[in-house]
Design a protein around this nucleic acid. Structure first.
Lengths: 204, 204
DNA sequence: CATTTAATTGGTACGCGTTCCATAAACTAT
DNA sequence: ATAGTTTATGGAACGCGTACCAATTAAATG
């Protein structure tokens, strides 16, 4: 097992250094000039390399955009937790968090597009697995809110995942499927939450 | 108010004729060669016009892709109704329909991309309003299934819209957000349906 | 007929994501 | 040093969606 000849692969340090440079550059472009400004050509120009070089470090644009997910999602989670501060009743907290969550994506369609509509459909995406795992943990904001209800029906994990995915669906439909007269958002959220608040005494 | 001189705008008949030609051509390309084959240049070539002419009839590619929604969605609705035939119990019917719905989009990621990820985020999209309205009516497959449960809680419209949007959310998350370990789909569907089946005697 | 107005066309152009390939760079072995 | 091997880089190119524009064609009016 001797060292192979030829130029060695870039050191792990250089790899992460480049990745963070790309991440910073992409974030700057996105924050300052919006979604459309984040293009491979402009990004390569701002970080000082050829457009093709990006493809040596990332499988494509999607993987680069994933670097921005963490920022967006933590901002969203912080926004929810801030809105939750004055509220004490567990049911109210959950209901508020759900409404705020959907509202956030409707108020920030660019963020929505970035996180939910910049993915390669139907791909296992082994490359982006790590970033994914990190960023998407912010969806766990609902875990505590649900467990505070002290339900004993189905596993917490199933409940939380279902709630998150459903809320994303609401945001998605209201955001993109105009032409279908959807019901009022808050009413849909309430209807959705009936599946998570089984104790009639907790209902309002 | 006399008629102005000069060539009149194209007759409504010619307009619809061209639109159906585009629709047929786009559908042929999509069915025979997949999503990526539906490009403005190729489409214009197959229907025999200049690429720019398409922009005289449609605001952009999105509006053309909407022409395909109706086909896909009616196929989906038919698929659901077929799977529902051997089932009699109302709760079973709803549960089966929901699972089949989500499964359909996971089994056909290209269809999913076409309907749910080819839209302009955050635009009112007045142009595509009509096609939208027509095609999206296929979401109403769940109306009867819900009303057969004889619930008296919230309006049928709210219930159906919430269910559809939530199921779309499940399909979306399972389709695109790999890297987050979602719960098993059928369990999430069951969790979701608890909000629509309130009578404990109906539960299984 | 000529005129007017609208529809269509083709060409050009921009920036885009992505791929290919030739070259440069960095290392080992001789 | 030199040769050999592997990686990293960047220029050229393809097809894409879309916009602009000049030229042409079509259908009405006078």
């Amino acid at each position: 097992m001797t060292k192979p000849a030829g130029r060695p692969p870039r050191s792990e340090e250089d790899v992460t250094k480049f990745r963070t440079k790309v991440s910073k550059g992409a974030m700057a472009l996105y924050r300052e000039q919006g979604f459309e400004a984040v293009s491979m050509r402009r990004l390569s120009k701002t970080i000082g390399c050829a457009p093709t070089t990006l493809y040596a470090h990332f499988s494509g644009k999607t993987e680069i955009l994933m670097l921005l997910w963490s920022d967006i999602l933590s901002e969203m989670a912080a926004h929810i937790e801030l809105s939750l501060r004055p509220i004490t009743h567990p049911v109210d907290k959950l209901q508020t968090a759900a409404v705020i969550f959907v509202t956030y994506w409707i108020d920030h369609p660019d963020h929505f597009r970035l996180v939910f509509m910049s993915t390669d459909v139907g791909r296992s995406d082994v490359d982006g697995f790590l970033q994914n795992t990190d960023a998407l943990q912010h969806f766990r904001v609902f875990d505590d809110l649900i467990s505070d209800l002290d339900q004993t029906n189905s596993p917490l994990r199933v409940q939380a995942d279902t709630l998150i995915a459903s809320l994303i669906g609401l945001a998605m439909c209201l955001n993109t499927l105009h032409g279908y007269k959807w019901s009022v958002m808050s009413e849909m959220v309430n209807q959705l939450l009936t599946g998570f608040i089984n104790d009639p005494e907790q209902q309002h």
